[in-house]
Design a protein around this nucleic acid. Structure first.
Length: 508
RNA sequence: GGUCCGUUCGUCUAGGGGUUAGGACGUAUCCCUUUCACGGAUAAAACACGGGUUCGAUUCCCGUACGGACUACCA
């Protein structure tokens, strides 16, 4: 059967969207575009206790920023609206009830205390994995053990209850994961998961299957943390009678900590000083702040390219890919199986590549913004010139200004190390001559002219230029390293240049 | 503990029964150069271990070890 490819990204709005979630969204987007299908966003907010204001908007903004905007979502709904599970609440119960009728699910009235007591009892009896399953359910309060009359009475009285799936005692459950191949699990290791919670909301397991079915989802591309519950999902498709249209599963390798082991977390961000969220975020409840890639100066092109390569590769030696090129090259077959450590250095490298690829005019805008933050101004033309000589040594747009402040601000002090090694009488002599040459010349000030005049000043004193270049740089910029000096001279202008040299000579 | 998943340079990975095991980031050295950077070149650096199958395994199979995920009325 040939259905239109439809995939979904289904985050839970419980905080900032983790970078691993962004990668999942990206892969879904790429797969949808590659196959001329649709990419939908569904908000999985069935846990009302974990609602965090602003989290939903954060998800939307992050995807928009990166250019992986869903075709269907709460903000641009289509045929499958609504796209928020909380708004779909009324439609889940009928499906749960359908399962109860078919004998694949049942009511359970156990309280939290009773469940806890059961687990303790089993643990004491040294049962390896205490769970609500085909054995233990016979000792609990549910519609399988209670008389029919009592079940009806309890339901009628409004007593809280949940609906649990009735996992078969012995059955081999198998699924063919697109990344991992056949995965087989015996039903005896599964437990009777809650499908409908006592607050009337479905759990993830139920809502996920019902919505994917109703929304015509053809492929479920999600993180590996879902693999253990996938057999349960397969069983649900079977019990609903939706096997024919059951989506194909693809469980993505996890994003791991850069050091040691384990899943990448916010703690790693704090520890290593790099972001694990796409954008800045402040939790409205706790006040906790987290930095974002965007605010740290990562370009969206770089983040996308970096993320795409965390677990996937094109099979050749190409490294640089635009979003469109990724769409063209993407395939699930080329996604790896093993977990991926998060290496921020690679992200920085990508950032440098994309930064240098930007035009001077684009970069000038970034630079002007940074300059403005310091209460200064620079016109677009000059900003572009600064950008052109600074971008080769910048990782982030902010570096253009951070590393190039001397372009607009005369040095008030000088690097002592360089001064002690390179500053000498020869340098002073040449610089004094240079000032005279500069003052006397009336031609248009160009890098070539600046160089010619400097050479003249050195030669007339019988001093080799190479001997005093570092000192000249120090005098004008205050530091011993930076872009081509003659280009710097022209940008700061002849008058300012003379002033700086005079200040340096009288100070050093 | 149980279930499931995984394991090629420090990191991301290509490859696949016979290869000098390839690329990228990072690291080191050299070249370019007025410095730094960019760029170019070179180098060090990997098939977890043990069995089996085979003429031959890094590649296929089985174990072991190690790592990870899951094990809620959270997703």
């Amino acid at each position: 059967m040939n259905r239109e490819v439809r995939v979904r990204f289904a985050p839970s709005p419980t905080g900032a969207l983790h970078i691993g979630g962004v990668r999942t969204a990206l892969y879904n987007y790429l797969f949808a575009r590659k196959n001329n299908g649709k990419f939908l966003l569904r908000i999985e907010d069935t846990d009302q206790t974990r609602f965090v204001p602003g989290a939903e908007e954060y998800i939307k903004d992050a995807l928009d920023w990166l250019g992986i905007t869903p075709d269907e979502s709460p903000w641009n709904p289509a045929d499958c609206a609504p796209y928020r599970q909380s708004e779909r609440k009324p439609m889940y119960m009928q499906y749960a009830l359908d399962l109860v009728e078919k004998g694949h699910a049942y009511y359970a009235f156990d309280t939290a205390e009773e469940l806890e007591a059961m687990r303790e009892r089993l643990t004491a009896a040294r049962v390896v994995s205490p769970q609500y399953n085909s054995i233990t359910r016979t000792q609990m309060k549910n519609s399988l053990t209670l008389p029919e009359d009592e079940v009806k009475a309890r339901l009628a009285s409004g007593e809280p209850y949940v609906i649990r799936i009735k996992i078969p005692r012995k059955e081999e459950v198998r699924l063919n994961d697109m990344i991992r191949g056949w995965v087989m699990v015996h039903s005896s290791t599964l437990d009777d998961k809650v499908l409908m919670k006592s607050d009337g909301m479905p759990t993830y397991h139920l809502a996920n299957i019902v919505d994917d079915h109703l929304m015509g989802i053809t492929h479920v591309i999600r993180g590996e943390e879902w693999l253990p519950s996938a057999p349960l999902h397969v069983l649900l498709y079977k019990y609903f009678g939706w096997e024919d249209t059951m989506p194909q599963f693809a469980h993505l390798p996890l994003l791991l900590k850069p050091d040691g082991n384990g899943k990448l977390s916010k703690r790693d961000a704090d520890k290593h000083g790099f972001p694990v969220f796409p954008m800045d975020w402040q939790d409205p409840n706790t006040g906790d702040k987290a930095m974002g890639f965007r605010e740290q100066g990562y370009l969206k092109e770089a983040l996308i390219n970096f993320l795409a390569f965390l677990g996937w590769n094109p099979g050749d030696h190409r490294e640089m890919f635009t979003l469109d090129e990724l769409v063209e090259a993407f395939s699930i077959e080329r996604i790896g199986k093993s977990g991926t450590k998060f290496d921020i250095n690679k992200a920085k490298w990508y950032n440098e590549q994309y930064l240098r690829a930007k035009t001077d005019e684009e970069l000038a805008v970034y630079l002007q913004n940074e300059v403005a933050k310091d209460g200064l101004e620079v016109d677009a033309e000059k900003a572009a010139k600064i950008a052109s000589i600074m971008k080769e040594r910048a990782t982030f747009p902010a570096d253009l200004w951070k590393e190039g402040k001397f372009m607009l601000i005369a040095p008030q002090s000088f690097d002592q190390d360089v001064a002690s090694k390179k500053w000498n009488q020869d340098a002073v002599t040449v610089l004094n001559s240079y000032v005279q040459e500069l003052a006397a010349d009336t031609a248009e000030f160009t890098p070539e002219l600046a160089k010619a005049l400097l050479e003249k000043a050195a030669e007339s004193n019988g001093i080799k230029l190479g001997k005093i270049m570092q000192a000249v740089r120090l005098a004008v910029t205050g530091v011993g390293a930076g872009p081509d000096l003659m280009a710097v001279f022209v940008i700061i202008g002849k008058d300012e240049l003379i002033k700086r040299i005079q200040f340096a000579v009288s100070t050093l």
